[in-house]
Design a protein around this nucleic acid. Structure first.
Lengths: 114, 114
DNA sequence: TATATTTACATAGTTATACTATGTATAAAT
DNA sequence: ATTTATACATAGTATAACTATGTAAATATA
């Protein structure tokens, strides 16, 4: 209840940035879902719930940005690895451009340069 | 229909960034709604529909981040000017900190530094 | 040996916010 | 006289994160 607005805002900021972060993460190396959560936590300190991540992974696949393959483990539960498709790579490039632009715009506005 | 994913993504990125941009914009100078749309368009090239902006302005006020006052014009329709409350100023500071952190995290991830 | 925790996947329902479409009203431009 | 620009607003829709919950195997702990 404490700072309701800020918390809601942080959650809203994730809408968009989260898919961007995920696509970037799997762009250099195939990753499985659970691993993505850990990597994001470690490198950005953002906590992504499993109930957030798995539907997102499915959506990215359904939209044609990723593919996946199951990999059996010698021990333990099989892992579903995700990788970018050509469309995924292309879209990620465009997202990076847009993000760079947005970053500039927001810096301008926060630094009173309107 | 062309690039559906990217367009949806851009719209999602706005959820969060838009309120941040608006708060920054009115932080240095009282602005009225219509003016906010023009300023955002000019300084960030982001097109905000009126049906997006006015509900947002009302929400920010309801959440206690802004107040407003009507100002009659010698000619033309009265304008509703918005300004930050103390809570609005405090929250904006925290949003700026969070954004700075996010920017760093995303730069790290896009530059393959995981 | 029994129990709790960690790993690894998934979905149903809820919430929050941007978008679309639409409406009202005044002033200026064509 | 009609269109465009200015200035506000709301109802309904779509999207995506969040909460809660569930399954199952492996490992750690009591």
């Amino acid at each position: 209840m404490d700072n309701d607005f800020i918390n809601k805002w942080k959650s809203q900021v994730k809408k968009g940035t989260l898919s961007f972060i995920v696509l970037n993460a799997i762009s250099k190396k195939e990753l499985y879902g659970y691993e993505v959560i850990e990597i994001i936590k470690k490198s950005t300190d953002i906590e992504v719930a499993e109930g957030t991540l798995y539907p997102l992974m499915n959506r990215l696949k359904k939209e044609g940005l990723t593919t996946s393959k199951w990999v059996e483990q010698e021990s333990g539960i099989p892992r579903k690895y995700y990788m970018l498709t050509d469309k995924g790579k292309k879209d990620l490039m465009r997202m990076r451009e847009y993000w760079k632009q947005l970053e500039k715009s927001i810096n301008k506005i926060t630094n009173n340069e309107i």
